[in-house]
């Protein structure tokens, strides 16, 4: 696994990291719950055939404290649009996971001409009283890895401080990622995106881990029913909520095939 190229752009005054690796048509990816404290195998898989561009969501690792000035949904949307423009992703294929999937779906709804094809891995944004998602913010700390990944060790590995990391700042950054997600999705995960799904024209792939303990599988059907573009639902066997962490090869292949 080689390191990606790192660019830094200014989003509302916050230095924001953009990773870039590979060659071929551009594919953007926004991370799921917890963000990306480090590069991961899934992105290497994608980079085999694509130029993978990974902007950090404000407040996620690499996104500084950019979430702290985003008060309304419109604030978030404009910050993300700015980020996609600065990451040179306008007109590209977009993928996202979990909270990041909800955000790329919003971009596709608000700026339909800017997104070629869309891949959503278990997106946040809806809430069904009869089948509510698991509350990711009301959990004992030791339960979180097993809720987000089918194999908790994979999530722990993603979040573990690397050799030489600042032992004080590293854990604070991980809490900040959870806070940034809370800032836009608290308390139910419901941004009322159902009102905007019909604006999505891009062909959309909905990916769901068969072992997702956060977002019920029925939500795939709700997204598919709401989106105007052609949709396809694919289940990833043995994967949890962050399916790309559990099954990097399978998820990367599904996205590469869909956006080919």
């Amino acid at each position: 696994m080689s390191e990606p190229e790192t660019l830094t752009v200014d989003i509302n005054g916050f230095q924001t990291r953009i990773w870039r690796k590979g060659s071929g048509p551009k594919l953007g990816y926004l991370a799921g719950f917890g963000g990306l404290p480090r590069w991961m195998p899934f992105l290497d898989e994608l980079a085999k055939t694509r130029t993978v561009i990974v902007p950090s969501v404000p407040g996620f690792p690499g996104g500084d404290r950019g979430h702290t000035i985003l008060d309304s949904h419109l604030d978030w949307m404009l910050a993300l649009r700015d980020l996609l423009e600065k990451a040179d992703l306008v007109g590209a294929d977009l993928a996202g996971s979990s909270v990041g999937a909800s955000l790329v779906a919003e971009m596709a709804a608000l700026w339909p001409a800017s997104v070629r094809r869309l891949a959503l891995i278990a997106p946040f944004g809806l809430f069904d009283d009869k089948d509510p998602p698991t509350d990711p913010w009301a959990q004992r700390a030791d339960a979180v890895p097993g809720l987000l990944c089918a194999d908790p060790e994979i999530y722990k590995g993603m979040k573990a401080a690397p050799e030489g990391a600042n032992s004080i700042e590293w854990p604070i950054e991980q809490v900040r990622a959870s806070e940034a997600a809370a800032r836009i999705f608290w308390p139910l995960g419901n941004t009322r995106i159902e009102k905007r799904l019909r604006l999505i024209q891009a062909p959309t792939l909905l990916l769901w881990g068969s072992e997702d303990k956060i977002m019920p599988r029925t939500y795939a059907d709700k997204f598919a029913a709401g989106i105007s573009g052609k949709t396809e639902i694919k289940t990833i066997a043995g994967a949890g909520h962050l399916a790309e962490l559990d099954k990097p090869v399978e998820v990367a292949k599904a996205i590469s095939d869909f956006t080919a």
Partner: peptide
Amino acid sequence: DPKWSTPPGYTSEGSQRAGIESQV
């Protein structure tokens, strides 16, 4: 229940820093 004790952002980063430092 400890699951109700740590909503992210409730404790300021300054206090988190002080807490972690004091543990260290």
